[in-house]
Structures are given as C-alpha cells and as structure tokens.
C-alpha cells in the first residue's frame, strides 16, 4: 500500500447530522462522523463536545455533499414526538492512507 494518498482509490467519508429543522441553516443537535478506516468506531463520549460545524450549511461550505435529505413525508400528529431532529447524511470522497 502506498503512502501517497493520491494513488489510493477514493473512499466515502460519512457525516450524519441531525438538525433542529429541515433547514440547512438550523443548528445541529446530533453529529456522527464515520471514517472509512478499518476498525473505526463512532462512540458516545463523556467529554465536552467540540463539533466542527454548527449547521449543515457549514459542513457544505467545508466540502461535504448531502446524499440524503430528511424525509418529510412521514405522517405526524400534533401530540407525539419521536426522534431528535431532522437527519441529513453527507459524504466526502477522499483518498485515505491507513
């Protein structure tokens, strides 16, 4: 395996962002980053959260592309609440050296 990332096939980095509303400018309430590296684990942590982005838009500006927008067709009523926020899934295709 080469140490030169330019010679490696591109891999898909994933970013799950749960935003306050379906608007890309709304504040992020949840963040999961998945790196395409063997053995990588995304873990709940007890440390203070220092997220790289405050909004989905900030991630887009940093080069992430949305591959799935929140589903807004689900039935709803005016009483029940379920999951937290509206989930955007984003990707970056990058060469990765392991």
């Amino acid at each position: 395996m080469s140490d030169d990332p330019g010679s490696e096939p591109l891999r898909q980095r994933l970013l799950y962002l749960q935003a306050r509303t379906p608007n890309v400018f709304s504040e992020i309430l949840g963040l999961t980053q998945i790196e395409p590296i063997r053995g990588y684990r995304a873990e709940i942590t007890a440390t203070e959260q220092n997220w790289p982005y405050e909004t989905v838009h900030e991630a887009i500006v940093d080069g992430w592309q949305i591959v799935q927008f929140p589903h807004l067709q689900a039935p709803f009523d005016d009483r029940d609440i379920d999951v937290i926020g509206y989930e955007f899934i984003l990707q970056k295709m990058e060469a990765v050296c392991e």
Binding site: Q18, G30, T32, A42, Q49, V83, I84
Partner: peptide, 9 residues
C-alpha cells in the same frame, strides 16, 4: 432508529 446518533447536544 437511534443507531445513527452518536453524540447529541
């Protein structure tokens, strides 16, 4: 359905 959450504000 919570499996795509890791850290939550």
């Amino acid at each position: 359905r919570m499996a795509t959450y890791t850290n939550i504000r």
